[in-house]
Nucleic acid binder design. Sequence first.
DNA 1: ATTAAGAATTAGTTGAAGCTAAATTGTCTC
DNA 2: GAGACAATTTAGCTTCAACTAATTCTTAAT
Lengths: 226, 226
Amino acid sequence: MSALLADVPLSRSVEDYLKVIYHLSSQGGFATTSDIAAMLLVAPPSVSGMVRRLSDSGLIEHVPYRGVQLTNQGRRAALRMIRRHRVLELYLTERLQYDWDGVHDEAERLEHAVSDELIDRMAMALGNPQYDPHGAPIPTAAGEIEETVLVPLAEVEVGAPYELRQVDTEDPARLRYLAEHGLVPGKGVTVTERQPFNGPVTLTLVPGGERVIGQELAQLLLCKRA
Amino acid sequence: MSALLADVPLSRSVEDYLKVIYHLSSQGGFATTSDIAAMLLVAPPSVSGMVRRLSDSGLIEHVPYRGVQLTNQGRRAALRMIRRHRVLELYLTERLQYDWDGVHDEAERLEHAVSDELIDRMAMALGNPQYDPHGAPIPTAAGEIEETVLVPLAEVEVGAPYELRQVDTEDPARLRYLAEHGLVPGKGVTVTERQPFNGPVTLTLVPGGERVIGQELAQLLLCKRA
DNA sequence: ATTAAGAATTAGTTGAAGCTAAATTGTCTC
DNA sequence: GAGACAATTTAGCTTCAACTAATTCTTAAT
């Protein structure tokens, strides 16, 4: 009922909740209380409380004991946060010499404080880029986001040429390891062998040589048929 | 008693209080409850409450019914915030085309979110500058700040050459007006006439010509004998 | 159909930081 | 020295967003 027109400023917590709900429900389904709690490192009752508030202000739809989904208004707010985060990550790496494995925490705090104007100025200074340092698409100021279907390297067709597009983690240790082994967005990659039972994946990089990586990392490397 | 070693993260409010207490007590005296309340736009009892908390954590010294002063620990924290604010203001104007009259609000929000590392990187990118866009000195990362005695243009010796060093306001309207009339840090200025009873001040700019400004603005323009 | 396990929710508490209204203290004047 | 007035503080309440403990609901297995 409320906030149909008024774009009330959201609290830091609300912004965090919307972001994780967006991620958890991005594959169409519901985000559950316990998943949200796990992602935000809070207790489930805290989530129940916030779900009530978010639902009251029309940002999410709540089906008791099932989970939540974003409303259009909620999705708009979530995409705004994601735009902020990704523009910040790119700006920090491009203009202030941050490493791609170190930007996440800084962006995480800044995204709640920056104005839309600053984000747009940063985006402008970078030439209105489409992707962040990890290859994730940056939503436009209007709230549109590119939706490309990408395949984890772990599930790619053996022998076929792919392009590594996105690295789906923010964990510094994993990111550092991947960068050291040349596994960054833009690389050409062909899987030459895949062991069964979640075994290692052998691949050829272009440019670059052979690599063998485990199942867990192969799951994070999102590719597109070349 | 607490926090002798632990550098506990401070809340947004605490940081704001420390900053205004620093400014209010910079001329040596005490910052009073009502002055703090007026600057932060909160009610006096809210200040009393916060003063208790700040005093408990050793950031200020409180003399009941007199006022408060920063402890060394409090001063260090306040100078850290001021460094953040001023580095941010300069970075935004130098690198992201903000006007000097528009940076304040953005810096005000960001200063609570940025890491020390980001501030140091920004400062580095700018060549470790000494002054912000308004001519105010930027404290070093170690917590030192330049203390130069500056004279308001309103109290300057008539006929003597001065250099305009600092513009002591963050009000966008006043800043815009001053910039339009060439009254920016670095300008040479000589007062040729001063009317009594808080009347207008006539001055000559180098480079630039004659100007007549009111007492209120003349009070904001801090100068040094050339 | 019942029950046990697990997930979700409600109830009640806490701490920050704001508020108003009431009480207190300090100071200035007569 | 006694008021009077302003400034300050105390008391008590509100909201946000967390928590623990207790309760309720769903689901899946016997």
